[in-house]
């Protein structure tokens, strides 16, 4: 179970990711979208989910039990090829329901000091 003291804590990303045209192209192709230098609206998940996973696994949760419950993206500035992104994740809430643990993580993708995209993932860790 997640230590309740971690709710509200922000975990700054330790590395920056440069978004490549190749990564956008592969993602767009997988979704059958035209390849442009603007990433598809859900592309942020390729950065945010890895960060959420590392934060929650380091906090003792079993990633093999996870199911994605909800997802939201708030896009202030669309991600583009060449953007250098750091990702800070905040555990916004954690609750138990029927033995499952339901955790919402907000990941802020930061470009040049501004939040380009906020990604909220609600993850259900099955009992």
């Amino acid at each position: 179970m997640l230590n309740p003291d971690l709710v509200g804590r922000t975990f700054p990303g330790t590395k920056s990711t440069t978004i490549t045209q190749e990564s956008i192209a592969a993602f767009a192709l997988a979704l059958g979208e035209p390849n442009t230098d603007i990433a598809p609206p859900t592309f942020a998940i390729t950065i945010s989910l890895e960060q959420s996973q590392s934060v929650l696994v380091d906090s003792g949760l079993d990633w093999s039990r996870v199911v994605h419950g909800d997802q939201r993206f708030l896009i202030n500035k669309p991600l583009q090829a060449g953007a250098e992104i750091t990702c800070n994740s905040t555990i916004e809430s954690a609750r138990s329901m029927g033995g499952n643990e339901i955790i919402t993580v907000r990941s802020d993708l930061i470009e040049s000091g501004e939040v380009a995209v906020s990604s909220w993932s609600t993850l259900v860790f099955r009992a």
Binding site: A30, L31, T36, T42, G69, P78
Partner: peptide, 29 residues
Amino acid sequence: GMYTMGLVGQYVAEIAGGSSKVQDFSARF
């Protein structure tokens, strides 16, 4: 779930006239 949402994102981007015009997008799986 994100693949399904991604396909829906494509639909939304097409309505919007491009990915750059999608500001907020959410779904429950």
